[in-house]
Nucleic acid binder design. Sequence first.
DNA 1: TTGTACGCGTTATCAT
DNA 2: ATGATAACGCGTACAA
Lengths: 363, 363
Amino acid sequence: MMAAVNRKNAAPTIRAVASEAGVSVATVSAVINQTRFVSAETARRVNEAIKRSGYRPNRLARGLSTRETKTIGIVMPTILSPIAPLLLKSAADVLHEHGYAVLFSNTEMQTTWEEQAIELMFDSQVDGLLVVPASETLESLKLFSDARKPVVLLLHGLEGASGCDVIRSGNFRGSFDAVNHLIGQGARRIAVLALPLVSESEKDRMNGFRTGVLAAGRTLDPELMRVGAPSESGASEDHGYRETLRLMDLDDPPDAIFAMNQYMAIGSLSALKELGLRIPTDVALVGYDDLIWTKNLEPPMSVVAQQVELIGRMGATRLVHRLAENNHHSPAESVTVDTQLIIRASSNRDALTPSIDMENTPK
Amino acid sequence: MMAAVNRKNAAPTIRAVASEAGVSVATVSAVINQTRFVSAETARRVNEAIKRSGYRPNRLARGLSTRETKTIGIVMPTILSPIAPLLLKSAADVLHEHGYAVLFSNTEMQTTWEEQAIELMFDSQVDGLLVVPASETLESLKLFSDARKPVVLLLHGLEGASGCDVIRSGNFRGSFDAVNHLIGQGARRIAVLALPLVSESEKDRMNGFRTGVLAAGRTLDPELMRVGAPSESGASEDHGYRETLRLMDLDDPPDAIFAMNQYMAIGSLSALKELGLRIPTDVALVGYDDLIWTKNLEPPMSVVAQQVELIGRMGATRLVHRLAENNHHSPAESVTVDTQLIIRASSNRDALTPSIDMENTPK
DNA sequence: TTGTACGCGTTATCAT
DNA sequence: ATGATAACGCGTACAA
């Protein structure tokens, strides 16, 4: 009978390599992880055995033993939002560069699933977590704080998650700047198409808007504030379209519209054009997020742009550092990444004198 | 002295639960996995102990023992392509519904990294793999076939991967239909802006174009075939812009352009408008992939649309079924999901009589 | 410089 | 109906 070494078709284990090379498993482990000195000759034999057998270390077993999986979880409410792919990519790139695998979960805005996704990642023993929170609060994050595993929040904070690092996007300031810009362009009545005020981001955007209006000595007209758009892109666009028609049907319609996501902005644009209104002369328009095609619209649209890539990179980097330095105890850090107001024709009354629109011309 | 059960701050193990409930670990395991009968009373005690201790099964340990991780890997060349997010979402949704975790890797078009990513997933003991191949061949997939682990290819096949299921997109037919449509609109000289011919998708698209032209009794003019665009969106757009300017500068310029990705199509559109050409009268234009904003361009753009969501769902479903039925040996399946030609104003000369463009009007 | 043996947290195979 | 205990594949004290 043969030793229990060669179960048919099973992947070779470290033990198989050890016996193949005529050394102990400790030695094999040592040469793989460079964890202690091994004589050149022994190392050579081991490496040869590894190559011959096609041995590959089992990350599960390693993780079980070391209590480190070199895996981090990323959970976001929807990968279909226009900025999500870049956020995922920039974060994942950094993580991959540092040898981490990425466990991903799209929670599709479902509160319960968001919790479950986080639990799933915890159970998978991820070393840390990157979260774009959708809910107002996340019970399951307690699992991570109890286990002293680092969590970094992206885009906005979360109630009761004071222990987490947060890489915020400057939503308040972004809206505030947009309103100021519109006022500077002579807008008297500014309408807003806002998202449902659930997460910090949306609240901040709305507060920025309010503050901007009030700070300019204007009053807030509830009729001009349409809160609560569907999140799905097509539905959101329809919403922007319809609400704009209603707004322009008011006795005293707005002469500027600030849409807090880009799909609503597009719908709004369609409606304005359909009504035969001149943009920005009759109504100035500012949207949110600078997507690749935003500048190709007619007219090119002004937007509040978030530095999505930077946010993703910073979040991942923060996590990697915490993990590397066993930096689990230093106080949570909070950073806000500024937004940038990009002014294009849709809101630029100053530039109405015929001129070349540089933005619309590829280099 | 106390038993080695309560290492400070360590997560409770199945052993802790067992002793807490006064039963053996086998019993605890049994109630968790419903793997054998347990008396109601015992089960109650166990469940209580689980709840009290906050015990959560360790998926690593479970995977090590069962050789099933309930995790599948998804690797794609870039999440920034316009169709990638939907592909990821639709696949991940199906997988999540079936209790699978998703290990994700963006390989950013790097051939070596693509291999490494697949190896990483293999080492992580994923149960199966979903791949959008970027390279012409993938050595590392051999790891999976050797281990009899299922792999499903998405969007297009791969040389030497005959063992894998493939959910193809109908690229050949898509291009073929586009050309036929343009010819039907009276186009005499059709130019093409093609992607680098590396993966099967791009080759198929190009072949569809060639076949369409030849089948109509026309000849292929190399001057009208511009192959090799950058993959990054902005660069791709610039490329489309520049190549279009050159095309229109020919002695005998084209009267129709087929752009094989949507960014090139946008660049092309910019160039045509800048040249003061009428679309589709002077030049008809057809792009690829129906993005949310494609219909909002001026004029709304015709495209070859891929059924991305369906492809993602089918791929994930196929994988889940193979896993569920231990269906690892049935022959590889190959399916092609049809593309759909969506005709809009940019190529529709028939509809040039003034009329309402329904597509451009939200419901 | 290298080897032995135990632990990581489960599941699964025997017994009982 | 339940309990002991051997895998699973690896890292790592502790020995030698």
